[in-house]
Nucleic acid binder design. Sequence first.
DNA 1: GGTGAAACGGCGGTCAG
DNA 2: CTGACCGCCGTTTCACC
Lengths: 151, 151
Amino acid sequence: MPLNELDERIVHALAADARRSYADIGAEVGLSAPAVKRRVDRLLAAGAITGFTVRVDPAALGWQTEALVELYCRHNTSPADIRRGLSRYPEVASASTVTGEADAVVQVFAADVRHFEQVLERIAGEPFVTRTKSVLVLSPLLRRYGAGSPG
Amino acid sequence: MPLNELDERIVHALAADARRSYADIGAEVGLSAPAVKRRVDRLLAAGAITGFTVRVDPAALGWQTEALVELYCRHNTSPADIRRGLSRYPEVASASTVTGEADAVVQVFAADVRHFEQVLERIAGEPFVTRTKSVLVLSPLLRRYGAGSPG
DNA sequence: GGTGAAACGGCGGTCAG
DNA sequence: CTGACCGCCGTTTCACC
């Protein structure tokens, strides 16, 4: 779906603050409030905007341990299987299938190292998981668009 | 800041859909709308919730290639050096220093594989970088809690 | 894409447990 | 101190031009 410059400015405004009123955004980009809403609705329908969420400070919520876990799965495991299995863990912030030796990389937030160990054991115990390999995040250097945080 | 179970459920509801009305969330967690708002205001004031944003489909915005890049740096490189060096790249969505062999893991969004290759070459050419090792993201399985995408 | 009107939700004050 | 009820007002969201 082709976005024009107006759409990009609207998305940019919403990315900075999704609670800004349509009238306010309209004043910035040069449209009326209903016109902005129609574009946002169109972006939602097209899947360019997939939803609205909160930006959270993991540490402030008590999730002080972050880790990246490589998942090695059985050969007949589908991405959907992995998704289903991981979606039950509130500690899993994001997950993607990847090229290379591992099948998926999972971003996990936990209260502390002890909590992370428990989560890792449970994930490693999933029937589709054969092996895991994880690194702990020391300090988040940049968190521009990606990288979420738990709730 | 200590969050009780009610706060966590409210944050979780907002993470799933930040546009849900306070009354709606209140019905789910067993509170009235004003009570939910007061808790959200408190979470905002405490910095636990840092803002509201849109979840965007990177592909729809023209960023169809995502990669995770492990960075191996000179031994005297500080996290601040890495941060400074990477912050100049708009394609870098997030970066963290990590335990293990690599010094940092960087999440990169690019228009296509060709674009990614160019970005990777430039990052690999940074004076503090000795080696890189990257995997391409095949499909994003889970992208919770505002995790995301460029804008 | 702009305009006007109606419905909804946000948000303060106020009171009760 | 935390939650519930009730105003007013801004915002959303239509139908229509």
